[in-house]
């Protein structure tokens, strides 16, 4: 199939979906009040974007998200690389991560804020708990993929570097890290999705400020168009981040042959 034809089919498929969304409430196939037509939702999205209150909430959420994801990257990637190069450490830590895997990390926001609440004022405890669960949620994919990447370095590359006279530190910096980078980045892609899920989840569960809270307030007062509008915005954010990631990887790793 030619690229032009592929694009046309993709566009047609999206158009059909949007058309169904627009038509269903208008034809009375879905209740207009709970599923507003797409055009009205998009108009709502524009209104929400123009709302200064929403922009404040968005800034709060963005700060939380960046703090949580940043902590996870700073802790998880070095830990994963260390695990990849030190089998004993890996054997010790990997079962712990496997144990944590099926635990709904977002739900841990509640016990965390209870425990933290004994140490700090309530507002700060809530905030710290939210950032902590985001970090916790992202930690596993980041660590596991960094460990896989660092463990899977072609040994002949390391031999070549040793033969050329590269010491331990240089081998880590010049061979292990670049070789593990594609895996680290694919972990980051999963972590991006997990971070948004955990962010919105934590904000829905423990209401305070943030996009999740804004979304829920709209739900509480029955402004369903606004609910849909914010949902569309959040979905678009996820898509933009993911696409931006793919573009960045292609620029960053021109040598990488695999799929990003």
């Amino acid at each position: 199939m030619s690229p032009a034809r592929r694009l046309a089919v993709s566009a047609a498929s999206v158009a059909v979906l949007c058309g169904c969304w627009e038509a269903a409430p208008r034809l009375g196939l879905a209740p207009d009040a709970s599923l507003p037509p797409l055009s009205r939702v998009l108009a709502g999205t524009a209104a929400v974007l123009g709302d200064a209150a929403f922009r404040d909430q968005l800034a709060v959420s963005a700060a939380r998200w960046a703090a949580g994801l940043g902590c996870a990257v700073l802790a998880g990637v070095p830990l994963g690389v260390a695990m990849g190069r030190a089998p004993l450490l890996r054997r010790l830590v990997e079962p712990l991560l496997a144990l944590l895997y099926p635990v709904p990390k977002v739900a841990l926001v509640v016990p965390l804020l209870l425990v933290l609440g004994q140490r700090m004022p309530a507002g700060r405890a809530d905030e710290t708990a939210r950032v902590a669960v985001i970090a916790l949620g992202c930690l596993i994919p980041l660590t596991v993929s960094a460990a896989h990447g660092a463990a899977g370095v072609e040994p002949r590359l390391l031999w070549t570097a040793r033969a050329a006279g590269a010491g331990r530190v240089r081998r880590l910096a010049a061979v292990v890290l670049p070789a593990a980078l594609p895996q680290v980045l694919s972990g980051l892609r999963i972590a991006l999705a997990v971070s948004l899920f955990t962010l919105v989840g934590a904000e829905l569960l423990v209401r305070g400020q943030g996009v999740g809270a804004y979304l829920f307030d709209a739900y509480d007062i029955g402004e369903y168009t606004r609910v849909w509008a914010v949902t569309v915005l959040v979905a678009a954010t996820g898509l933009v981040l993911d696409t931006g990631y793919a573009l960045a990887v292609r620029r960053l790793l021109p040598w990488w042959e695999g799929e990003v």
Partner: peptide
């Protein structure tokens, strides 16, 4: 006892750094 720069090696699988 260890690899050294006095002995260079070439592998069948090339072992080039793909990122360079």
């Amino acid at each position: 006892t260890a690899p050294g720069p006095d002995r260079g090696i070439v592998f069948q699988e090339f072992a080039l750094f793909p990122w360079r």
